[in-house]
Design a protein around this nucleic acid. Structure first.
Length: 594
RNA sequence: GGGGGUGUAGCUCAGUUGGUUAGAGCGAUCGCCUGUCACGCGAUAGGUCGAGGGUUCGAGUCCCUUCACUCCCGCCA
């Protein structure tokens, strides 16, 4: 026992009746009845109702105390009468009658109320983050985050992984996102980069013979923010294993994630063995590589229908002849939906920059026909073919989009979400995990028309290494995988390429010469030529895991001290100007654009 | 770099077609109230309507410029 408290604000029960206690905490709420004053005292653990009446000489002083002042009270625990028990709080069966009190920390007038369910502007919340963090919801989110991280750490150690730290000041690498740079005082004109991920280090750890590594690793990428992407820094569970195949990594992650999500969420897991979907299949059926499998809608390619003579939908037919494709989404049993339902979706698609979504509904009077603005363009035979291709039945509706592959994927992907939302098809009480596999090693940059790595340049290409056809680089698949949950990309990983010769060949395709590779990736390429084990790994994003568990849409709700969208810390005033002497020491001069 | 949204009291917001002195709830200050748990009641203070310019007899409201925050696109191996 110390001088501040005998109990926390969430400890006292009716068994403590008549005990003398000391409590310390924040004044959460006052209810002043003039001759009787209730004070809800709050700490990290909970709330205890304290009261004082005018007979006590401290009454006047306590009556005037500001909310959020930190006080210490000395008093007696009493059991509440039956009528005055508060079932909302776990100390609700008792209250503490205050004998005397001390102010431990004064509080000025608050810029934002702490005890309130109202929402506040991000600006004020971030500036006064220490007040914001006292509020129930976000306080619990941050505690959840802490619990999730220590659970992960324990699990990983249980699975035989070793935790290591890797450097924060490292070298800039040409691939990937923009780097955060740090000037070197001892090496004038040279810069460190903050790691975008400990990618090369973790591979070096494997080459060093440590077998299984993990780290809760900070990662730094100087890219623009999104709701689910902090500017600057985020955390990954970085892990790597030697002598493994893709399936071995999956096993570790599935075990870990099933355990995490069962422990920290009441929602059901749709799969405990996560389904694997190839990149190609995912792009067709879902229009993206992070499908929300809670959504039952599937996209089908029906381009070939538009080559038939008995289909007279001329706008689409003309586009198809010039290389466009047609894809559709079928909704089950929507024949009775009002016209406005369909028109809303069509209008919405136009707002997304598409040319709209054509639609019709299958019906059958004497024979099968299509009802809707474009229904008349399809004969009975064409409709029957569509039904067999898509599994559609009488009463179902078709939404059709036509366009070039990329645009088509984009709009059908968005439409799949939009239609499912409108029809309330998504079960919010489940988590649906899946693996996306078989990523292409390379892709063509649309603007420059050059071949570049589509994912991670250190990934191992699939197939027999001797038989890889380097003349058709776009056909090379990689042992590269993403973990996806409810449409959120949680993680990327790969079996790594540990063969230097193969590395040179692949980098050559992406436009890097041997000497480029030797220079830019010197540490790693060098290490790989001194006996490197086959290895692979993955790096799930901690922030996004906690977002899913806390049911939050914004990453700042699970981040203690986040920056705003312009990468500024409004509480600490970062970034800030530095002195002339600091610049001089670093051999830097500034040319700020006006 | 581009597009959308927002900006009115310390906080959350309302403010009609452009029309007299810009409102409410919470908070603050003062007063009343002994069983509340979002306690209740009464009063008072608090405003460069984000900033600048314009149209108009008259602008919180319309137009232009600009700033801040936010969401999205680009970007994120």
């Amino acid at each position: 026992m110390n001088k501040y408290r005998t109990h926390t604000c969430n400890e006292l029960r009716k068994d403590n009746n008549t005990e003398k206690v000391i409590l310390s905490g924040w004044v959460n709420k006052k209810r002043d009845h003039g001759n009787l004053l209730f004070i809800d005292l709050r700490d990290n653990y909970g709330i205890t109702q304290c009261l004082i009446d005018k007979e006590n000489s401290n009454f006047k002083k306590l009556e005037k105390i500001q909310l959020e002042t930190v006080i210490k009270i000395k008093g007696n625990v009493v059991q509440r009468s039956k009528e005055s028990i508060n079932n909302e709080i776990s100390t609700g069966e008792i209250e503490v009658i205050i004998e005397n009190f001390d102010i431990l920390g004064e509080c000025r007038e608050l810029p934002l109320p702490v005890f309130s369910d109202q929402e506040y502007s991000e600006e004020i919340r971030l500036k006064y983050r220490f007040l914001d963090l006292r509020r129930k919801k976000i306080h619990e989110n941050i505690i959840l985050r802490s619990n999730v991280i220590s659970f992960i750490r324990n699990e990983m150690i249980k699975y035989g992984f070793l935790e290591f730290q890797t450097p924060i000041l490292t070298s800039s690498s040409p691939e990937g996102a923009r780097d955060f740079l740090v000037p070197s005082r001892l090496n004038p004109g040279k810069f460190y980069a903050l790691p975008q991920a400990p990618q090369q280090f973790k591979q070096l750890v494997m080459v060093s013979g440590f077998d299984k590594y993990f780290q809760i690793a900070p990662c730094f990428r100087d890219e623009d923010a999104r709701a689910d992407r902090s500017p600057g820094e985020f955390y990954q569970l970085d892990l790597e294993m030697s002598f493994v195949e893709q399936e071995d990594v999956f096993k570790v992650i599935e075990r870990l994630f099933v355990n995490i999500f069962k422990k920290f969420s009441k929602k059901k897991l749709l799969f405990s063995k996560f389904p694997t979907i190839s990149y190609k299949e995912s792009m067709l059926k879902y229009g993206n590589d992070k499908p929300d499998l809670r959504n039952p809608l599937i996209i089908s390619d029906i381009t070939e229908i538009f080559f038939r003579d008995d289909v007279s939908f001329e706008i689409f037919k003309k586009l198809v002849k010039t290389g466009s494709m047609v894809r559709c989404i079928v909704t089950k049993d929507t024949k009775d939906k009002p016209r406005s339902f369909f028109d809303n979706i069509d209008r919405w698609a136009k707002e997304q920059g598409a040319s709209g979504l054509a639609y019709f509904t299958l019906e059958k009077n004497d024979e099968i026909s299509a009802k809707g603005p474009v229904g008349k363009f399809f004969t009975k035979e064409a409709l029957e073919l569509l039904m067999s291709k898509t599994g559609a039945k009488i009463g179902d509706s078709f939404f059709l989009a036509c366009g070039k592959k990329n645009d088509l994927e984009k709009i059908t992907s968005l439409a799949r979400d939009k239609i499912a939302k409108d029809l309330e098809l998504i079960d919010e009480s489940t988590f649906a995990f899946c693996w996306i596999v078989d990523y292409p090693m390379f892709e063509k940059d649309i603007q420059s028309n050059q071949i570049k790595f589509s994912h991670n340049p250190f990934s191992m290409p699939q197939g027999d290494v001797d038989k890889i056809n380097f003349d058709k680089p776009l056909e090379i698949l990689a042992y590269q995988y993403d973990l996806v949950c409810n449409g959120v990309e949680l993680s990327s990983g790969a079996i790594r390429n540990h063969i230097p010769d193969l590395m040179y060949k692949l980098f050559n395709i992406a436009g890097y010469s041997k000497s480029d590779v030797d220079q830019k990736f010197s540490g790693m390429i060098n290490a790989l030529s001194y006996g490197a084990p086959p290895h692979g790994g993955i790096a799930p994003g901690i922030d996004r895991i906690v977002m899913l568990l806390a049911n939050e849409k914004n990453i700042r709700e699970v981040t203690m001290f986040p920056m705003n969208q312009n990468a500024q810390d409004l509480m600490m005033n970062a970034p800030s100007n530095i002195s002339e002497s600091q610049l001089k020491e670093l051999n830097l001069s500034l040319k700020v654009k006006k």
